[in-house]
Nucleic acid binder design. Structure first.
Lengths: 145, 145
DNA sequence: TTGTAAATGAGACTCTATATCATTATTTTA
DNA sequence: TAAAATAATGATATAGAGTCTCATTTACAA
């Protein structure tokens, strides 16, 4: 698998954009941890490494990473966007509890074929998918009755 | 199929909450049209019908409708949340273009079994799901090269 | 009917995200 | 390699979605 930095750099060049130290640092930090994160957390982590990259650049670079398909958006329901890296990591889906809003991750390898078919039917080049199943977790079902 | 109003009223009672004219009007308006909508649009539509329901109540009621599973959230990528009614309507999924951000709807009936299996494996009572496939639409693929 | 618990409405407030623009950095070209 | 052209960054202003507060009103139970 090609390194993230290389893939991202190619994406940028392909768009007629430049590779900058800020973009590379943000990319590195995004792929350095394995949890969902939001912009504020990402900025804090960069600060801890001694980097003072502006909020605006972080937002801008994240938008590019999403566009490239290397990073995914996850709407966690606490009012703002969260992100997760995708490139080079096993795909997972989300179970969301409508009662407590909790988000549970689970592996799910069985969407590949369906994805392919849908892409063909809709003339769409598929990069990835986001499956969120919602319902009620065991704890919330207990409380209800 | 039982009418929306009845299902929602039961949901409210089950939660120890009250049925109010405001909640019923909002419910009716949500199910009166078939497109994605946001809070601002919903308030305008209520106004056109001569109803002056406050923004706060609209937000509060929508949250309840989402919790009940009758309405789904769709993050349209223009910076704020959009909604769609679900109860009693055929399920559809979304294709999102990473280039132009366009959202394309498509029917997809083939997730039922997978859903069932996932629910059992995770001790989760499944109400519905949200599948978003992202990639590049034909127009954006053309522009790129 | 009356009491009480819950819901509404108005508007202040918070905070995420975007826009602006002067400055700085990168790339191109001559 | 220097200068010109172009793009990116950073600081900060701004926009706007969504939440909170609390006084008033309403729904429901007894």
């Amino acid at each position: 698998m090609r390194p993230e930095s290389e893939v991202f750099r190619e994406f940028l060049i392909h768009k007629g954009m430049r590779s900058t130290p800020e973009r590379e640092e943000i990319l590195a930090e995004v792929f350095a941890h394995h949890d969902h994160f939001d912009v504020e957390e990402l900025i804090m982590r960069l600060r801890r490494r001694g980097l003072r990259i502006s909020r605006a650049s972080v937002y801008r670079t994240l938008a590019l990473l999403v566009e490239s398909g290397m990073v995914g958006e996850v709407y966690i329901e606490d009012g703002h966007m969260h992100y997760e890296h995708i490139y080079g990591h096993e795909h997972h889906c989300h179970l969301r509890c409508l009662g407590c809003r909790k988000l549970i991750e689970f592996r799910n390898g069985s969407l590949k074929e369906m994805e392919k078919r849908i892409g063909q039917e809709n003339d769409f080049e598929i990069i990835g998918h986001k499956l969120e199943i919602y319902g009620y977790c065991a704890a919330c079902r207990g409380e209800e009755s």
